[in-house]
Design a binder for these strands. Sequence first.
RNA 1: GCUCCCAUCGUCUAGCCCGGUCUAGGACACCGCCUUUUCACGGCGGCGACAGGGGUUCGAAUCCCCUUGGGAGUACCA
Length: 478
Amino acid sequence: MSVRVRFAPSPTGYLHIGGARTALYCYLIAKAQKGSFILRIEDTDLERSKREYELAMIDDLKWCGIDYDEGPDKGGEFGPYRQSERTQTYLDIAKDFVEKGFAYPCFLTTSELEELTAKAESEKKSPHAYHGKYRDLDPAEAKKRVEAGEAHIIRFKNPRKEWSFTDMVRGDVKFPVDMVGDFAIIRSNGMPVYNFCCVIDDHLMKMTHVIRAEEHLNNTVRQLMIYEALGAEPPRFVHCSLLVGEDRQKLSKRHGATSVKQYREQDYLPAALMNYLCLLGWSHPDETDIFDINQMDSIFDLNRFNKSPAFYDITKLKFFNEQYLRALSVEDLATGFEKAIPSEHAYHAKETSWKLDFAELFREKVQLFSDIVPQLGLIFDETIEQTEDVVDVNSWETTPTIRDYVKTRVSEIKASGSENITSEEFKEIMNHLKKELKIKGKPLFMGLRVVLTGKTHGPDLSKAIPLTPISTIEKRLS
RNA sequence: GCUCCCAUCGUCUAGCCCGGUCUAGGACACCGCCUUUUCACGGCGGCGACAGGGGUUCGAAUCCCCUUGGGAGUACCA
């Protein structure tokens, strides 16, 4: 039987970094086994789910390079792939469950439930100890009350036995009899609940593997019960490790940039992000770390998951991004810059050679700008448009001499109508300083750099200066 | 509280299943040197870990138990 794996996000926000990693794993496993990868939208929580998020998620997945075979916008043999469009299926099964005694209507009101939960807490009992109040109500009477229109939910009747399953990452996992109570499967508004829909769909859509993060591990016990009631064989479960922040807690919004969208906006390269994410909880058999996720084929082995939670470290992400940035062709880099070039450089940007020169210059210097490296737009500023004086111009005694001479030459060049200093002219300036003024070594290079850029490090001057408008240079000299 | 899961350098991890080849390997970060008449890249090197305690064994990072620590779940969220 061919492998079928699904990624089932809830459209309640933008695609999360953790979600992207899970999606990536699902995608890679499906690919490695030549199976199918399915996108299913779990939007049964009417209040929180929004169509715009669904669209944004699909868009982000596309940006990540994670392509699925079946999904809400693609269709497929087992659709629809949006749970809100499958409500009747769930309701029919719930009804069947009630008739067969696997589930029952519960008339507990929200306030009653709160009271019982508080009572359980004070008695140091498990909070679900009282959820089964209507469990043994006569079915005929329950039916009568439901038909009379009394508010109710449908609860699953916990068969109260021990459960266990073999997780492909965790190994054998056992759950005790009273781990959960009689949990809800249909809300009072008539909408079904996650654990119920998830199992029904995984069954109906013929999933062979359920791959998700460890936060769902405990849900498995409820799901196992539903599989049994359905008379269905559960799929293979793969609970991979959680992504955590610096406080070691589950990665969430408060940890900073945690949505894929934010990295897109900062121009991170998707291949770099995927490569990094792939290694957070999984290891390559060859112990290599830079690799193309699309060239893994059967290398992606689900026996290589690490069980412990992984810290999402942006410093290391930046390293991956740098590696990918360097590997880009000069042409691709130049294309990437196009949108980032400020209008005052428009005359430059028209020249392909200028763009290529700049791209090449940039590539050499990627590391230098590691803080802002992903942001091509800002790179431009850092490389060419350094405006702040961060260094004392007089830290070298030769600096004033250099500045005076450079000032004179720049005025001359400008007077001749040039918009920038050519490499030849720059070389002449260097030679003059060297030969006529006898300045050499560090004072020469650093002096020139400080005079021209106001900083003590940056790209090779002979390359950067010809790319800088003469007006910008003049401003710095004044 | 209860249940489940986890535990190798600061971080991501290899090794663990099938004990010896591990004075524990790689990568990020950090530090140093070399290269470059700057910075960076690159090369070389350094710092740096088997949570603790008991077993089992000739031998344990690897197997077993306990302790400690961390995390997740405990919803009419997913």
